[in-house]
């Protein structure tokens, strides 16, 4: 199993978390911990760059939803960028493509 690695950088519009590796039952809590530590301000946009994500199960999707809840509670927005094809298929299957703003590229929010 590949370790989940999360790197954080700040941009003018808000934080970008680059999430790579495998996000499953054992590793998804790490994203939740990292997101919970972010202090977002109203009007910011949290970008989750998922272009390096190789696997994501339902607990991974739960972590994405928890990140969304955390952002919305702070009055911030959230974007999923660079969503891999397989995850996009699952998100569409369960209707979450209507809930998340999805962006093919991974540049900071504009």
């Amino acid at each position: 199993m590949k370790t989940l690695t999360i790197s954080h950088r700040d941009t003018a519009t808000g934080p970008v978390l680059h999430v790579a590796g495998e996000m499953d039952y054992d590793q998804a809590p790490e994203l939740r911990r990292q997101v919970d530590r972010l202090s977002l301000t109203p009007g910011q946009c949290l970008v989750l760059d998922l272009s390096g994500l190789e696997f994501c199960d339902s607990t991974g999707i739960t972590a994405l939803l928890a990140a969304r809840q955390h952002a919305l509670a702070a009055g911030a927005g959230i974007v999923l960028a660079g969503v891999p094809a397989n995850l996009l298929r699952v998100l569409t299957l369960v209707g979450l493509d209507q809930v998340f703003t999805l962006r093919p590229d991974t540049s900071p929010a504009s």
Binding site: L65, V94, G95, L96, Q98, V99
Partner: peptide, 13 residues
């Protein structure tokens, strides 16, 4: 099509 995971949004399609 268009149905959403149950419990995610306050008013779900």
């Amino acid at each position: 099509p268009g149905g959403l995971l149950v419990g995610v949004l306050p008013d779900a399609p």
